[in-house]
Nucleic acid binder design. Structure first.
Lengths: 202, 202
DNA sequence: AACTACCAAGCAAGCGCTTGGTTTGTAAAT
DNA sequence: ATTTACAAACCAAGCGCTTGCTTGGTAGTT
């Protein structure tokens, strides 16, 4: 378990992955990503964890609460990693963008990848209240990106306005999961370098 | 109804939108996009069309057959539009890319947008056989893009290899539906121009 | 004594799909 | 001009199964 995750567990921001509830969330994340939320039954989740389906409702009030928790905790972890990535204020805007790209692509292809996939593909499965709550967490995350891109804009190196650029970038990076092959030659830094070519003037 | 659609109907490639079966497909497309495939019931679809739920199965053997038809017919229409867009061999690679961008973005934000959304978000809802069949249609579509991008590559104007560039581009464009606001200032050609800035060197 | 974590059983509602029969439009046969 | 034939389109009813969730109770730990 990473240092960042440990701190977030200690501060009560996320569920301990080693607790029964955490195991439940991990199982749900994998299933939601691979089968979709609505095709995943509470019995499916219970089976993976090794408990009765009714016992899920000791940990969560509804199935949708599980989905919200998966999304919220994923963003919280990723946001913390992003903050760390650009915490060095000495870095040039270019270096900061590079750092954020590697961080986000690493998150997409790493442990938090399934959770981020759930965020993208099951966004509409959340009811309004829950979606708005998760959206607030997303806004914090996006704020980090926009802040760095604004710095880069003031140096005149971006190919378009920060807000628009980030929207195109979000799509391009989210889509990586649909074609990336871990057995291929491309590693996270390579992908970050490629993405960089689309963002800044040469 | 556009000329291209009429021809495809006449040649039996797609269902006549004005037939009962076509109305059914249109209703299913809208519902699959707005609620998701598995949250949409055959009773939902029937209600929109104005028939009994059981009567759906006079037109399609299973609910999943409806999904396949929605996806397949959407690609067929878009492919035909793309072919038309680059049919003028006199165009420079730059102009061809511009034409394809406007065509694809127009499709995403226009009538075929819901169908394309279903293709992106419900891809995993298809069983293997059906998905492979739709994939073949997709390959034809992608072939048009790669062909044009290869032309552009030989002129040395692309920021990266055609195959990779197209993958990033697919994500960036697919994502547009999640943030585009028709009430805003951006029109299809504007979006195409912006996308162009990410693809080619200046 | 209180709390967390769980089981065993099952309910009410909703699901995709089937069945047997009816209506409707069209076109050839009388 | 009327009848006959036939297929496409649809209805009414419901079957068998799965769904999210509830209930009342138990075992172990603190």
């Amino acid at each position: 378990m990473s240092k960042i995750v440990k701190e977030l567990v200690a501060s009560g921001m996320i569920t301990d992955p080693e607790s029964p509830k955490g195991a439940l969330l991990a199982a749900a994340t994998t299933l939601f990503r691979s089968q979709g939320y609505s095709r995943t039954t509470v019995r499916d989740i219970a089976k993976v964890v090794g408990i009765q389906s009714g016992s899920l409702f000791h940990h969560f009030r509804t199935k949708e609460d599980i989905l919200e928790a998966v999304m919220a905790e994923t963003i919280i972890v990723c946001t913390e990693q992003m903050k760390t990535a650009v915490s060095n204020t000495q870095l040039t805007p270019r270096k900061k963008i590079q750092a954020l790209l590697e961080c986000e692509i690493g998150a997409i292809l790493g442990d938090t990848g399934r959770g981020l996939g759930v965020l993208v593909f099951e966004w509409d499965s959340l009811s309004n209240d829950k979606r708005n709550r998760v959206l607030q967490l997303r806004d914090i995350y996006e704020g980090i990106w926009l802040c760095v891109l604004e710095e880069a804009k003031s140096e005149g190196i971006l190919v378009m306005e920060p807000a628009l650029l980030r929207k195109f970038l979000t799509g391009a990076l989210s889509w990586i999961v649909n074609w990336y092959n871990p057995q291929g030659d491309l590693r996270v830094p390579d992908l970050a370098n490629l993405a960089m070519k689309m963002l800044v003037r040469t």
